[in-house]
Design a protein around this nucleic acid. Sequence first.
DNA 1: GGATGTGAAGTATTTCACAGCC
DNA 2: GGCTGTGAAATACTTCACATCC
Lengths: 220, 220
Amino acid sequence: MTSGSSPRHQGRADVPEVVVARLPQYVRILSRLRENNAEVVSSHQLGERLQVTPAQIRKDLSYFGRFGKQGRGYDVVHLLDRLKEILGLNDQWNVAVVGVGRLGKAILSYPGFTPDGFRLVAAFDGDPAVVGQDVAGLIVQPMDKLDEIVQREAISIAIVAVPVDRTQHVIDRLMQCGVQAILNYAPIAPQVLPGVRIRNIDPVLSLQSMTYYLGGEGEI
Amino acid sequence: MTSGSSPRHQGRADVPEVVVARLPQYVRILSRLRENNAEVVSSHQLGERLQVTPAQIRKDLSYFGRFGKQGRGYDVVHLLDRLKEILGLNDQWNVAVVGVGRLGKAILSYPGFTPDGFRLVAAFDGDPAVVGQDVAGLIVQPMDKLDEIVQREAISIAIVAVPVDRTQHVIDRLMQCGVQAILNYAPIAPQVLPGVRIRNIDPVLSLQSMTYYLGGEGEI
DNA sequence: GGATGTGAAGTATTTCACAGCC
DNA sequence: GGCTGTGAAATACTTCACATCC
């Protein structure tokens, strides 16, 4: 029932989700190391940069293979390449933005929001006043073109930035069209079908959980 | 060594961080239930809305007290009130935004980014061209006024939206000024002093960890 | 000497299951 | 009958520690 095996990593023993969630951080650090022409890195050095223990890094990597050399460490270029392949970051992923209000516009316009391998190929909005606008080089499409364009452009990922009371409905429609992964900016935990991935970006929850640890009055 | 006891919840047995991180979600759902005039809610109903098990909700709440009535459930207003108090959301928290580029401007302007209890009281930027601008009713201040204004305005929380290579330095300065909690938007895991809380908002990591679970080619 | 890879040990977190109460 | 509160059991995750190899 777990949908954890794709062509890229078929038959691999189940990898904990927390481990997968850390891999992109490793990719990011390794990319920077490569830019600085570092050839080799140890789990200890990686751990310092990421605030995790060396043992955790070695254990995480061991779910996917043996990438290091004893006494030496990991070859930066090689490990980076393998991790990108494991995560599917060598493929091209077409992404749609749904909801082109203030936030959607910011996402579409933000240069380099989308890293290597992700390409914003379509934008949708339900408001006729917004449809037809050119935002960051894309013409905003009406919602009833969703199915057609998702098919045609082979869109598998959607970034959803619509008002909270529209969010579940929009996500339901996206899933019907075959979208497999959703990055949601609305302050809600939408329900998704089995096999569909969702991540919620919710800065307010982060703020509200930090105050627990702060001293009594904000005003002292 | 753990700095987990503040005046609000002194002497409480250690509460797991994951539990604290879930409380704001409970607050949010309860707020909506109150708006809809619901009087009582069961752990089962809460769990459905939040995609967690009823047992987890009961267990989470049990760290803080006994708020429910057997056979009935939780009084919406009462539980909401208690959770807000536990989280410190009845206090007033003054917040500074550091970095008023594209992203910082969006945060400052976004209506209702800051929920009840949070107030944006100052904005800072290192770029002289930005200093002095009026953004959403705040005059952008230069970085060398940081210490003075953080003291004067009793700022305990900072939202950091500066370029990645400036982030650690800015956060170091904020901590020197006594800032206790940081919401960081740069793609990095900054180091913080013990007792300082940090949350990172990093949509790219979320995107990159979802592709692991998607089928092979993005283009099929 | 120095660093990996990994079973085993140790923690943390979630879920179960049921007594107790309304 | 229905639902909470909670020890106990189960599961998930992290860290240890050391054999192994360069």
